[in-house]
Design a protein around this nucleic acid. Structure first.
Length: 273
DNA sequence: CTTCGTTCCTGGAAGC
DNA sequence: TGCTTCCAGGAACGAA
């Protein structure tokens, strides 16, 4: 499930294969994934363009294809962008084929087909989730001064609060559980009950957990792969996620699984307060 | 206004 | 063994 570290790893691994390449053809095998404009206009708008830059904003990949045009991709649950030689067979679950110059093909694959793609030209559409993103972990705008007043007026569980992309861009279910475990805060605590010391610790630990995820090239549980089709390594470094019933790495207590905001959540009932 | 539940979708695992 | 049921969750949406 691509969260910020996974999307960043995709960006990094994709860049050397596609940057500077010309898009010579586009084939769409599932129209529904194209959110804007029409599939026909999407194809027409991309053919002949050069991929000038491969960027990222939160969990969105942003491919610049002209001064006034960008291809925005959200992988959601099981989407992937993979670059490979054009003479290689199509990967499984291929949904969109971007034929590039220099014998490279970039495939968009997706098992559950929740992924979304937008071709935005001259800001001709408004992408709600993209435009309202909060600051990212590890960025200057993400700090205690920013987070404290927002938490103070939120009555959501702290886990749900930090999963809100308008508050923090890039956290998903795995890293949210990990951040709260490291900060020793129970995920069901309401955001406005955290004291200053706890917010400070959480802020610091969100940065630590995300930096570790990036360093370990992302977390692969089931389907996530980077731009070259490789898995990440961070699943071998997790404190709580997917470890329900196993001993806490801190105190040995059996980790507990529950549901918060409809999402599976794992925590240590002793270490986390 | 905020918060909560539902929905989209498929594959894999668990249960009987 | 083979079938059915449940679960995974990002984010939009409608309901409370």
């Amino acid at each position: 499930m691509p969260e910020m570290p996974e999307v960043e790893q995709v960006r990094k691994t994709l860049t050397p294969h596609i940057k500077g390449k010309i898009i010579t053809n586009v084939e769409i095998f599932l129209d529904r994934l194209i959110q804007h404009p029409t599939p026909e206009a999407f194809i027409k708008g991309l053919i002949g363009k050069t991929i000038e830059d491969v960027g990222r904003k939160g969990k969105y990949l942003v491919l610049k294809t002209a001064d006034n045009q960008k291809l925005i991709v959200h992988l959601r649950m099981t989407g992937a962008l993979i670059a490979q030689d054009s003479d290689m067979p199509a990967p499984k679950y291929a949904k969109i084929k971007f034929t590039l110059s220099d014998n490279i093909t970039m495939w968009f694959t997706d098992i559950r087909t929740f992924g979304t793609l937008y071709l935005v030209t001259d800001n001709d559409t408004y992408i709600e989730g993209y435009e309202t993103l909060g600051p990212e972990p590890l960025s200057a705008g993400f700090n205690v001064e920013y987070l404290t007043p927002l938490a103070a007026k939120s009555r959501k569980p702290i886990k749900t609060f930090i999963l809100d992309q308008k508050i923090i861009a890039g956290l998903g279910n795995i890293y949210a559980d990990e951040c709260l475990a490291l900060a020793k805060i129970l995920p069901m605590r309401l955001a406005n009950t955290l004291n200053d010391a706890e917010i400070t610790e959480l802020c610091k630990d969100i940065n630590i957990v995300i930096a570790q995820g990036i360093k370990n090239r992302g977390t692969t549980f089931r389907d996530y792969k980077d731009g070259e089709g490789n898995k990440g390594d961070n699943q071998n470094h997790l404190l709580v996620y997917s470890r329900a019933g196993k001993p806490c790495k801190g105190c040995g207590t059996t980790l507990v699984q529950t549901k918060i905001g409809g999402r599976g959540s794992v925590y240590c009932p002793i270490c986390q307060k």
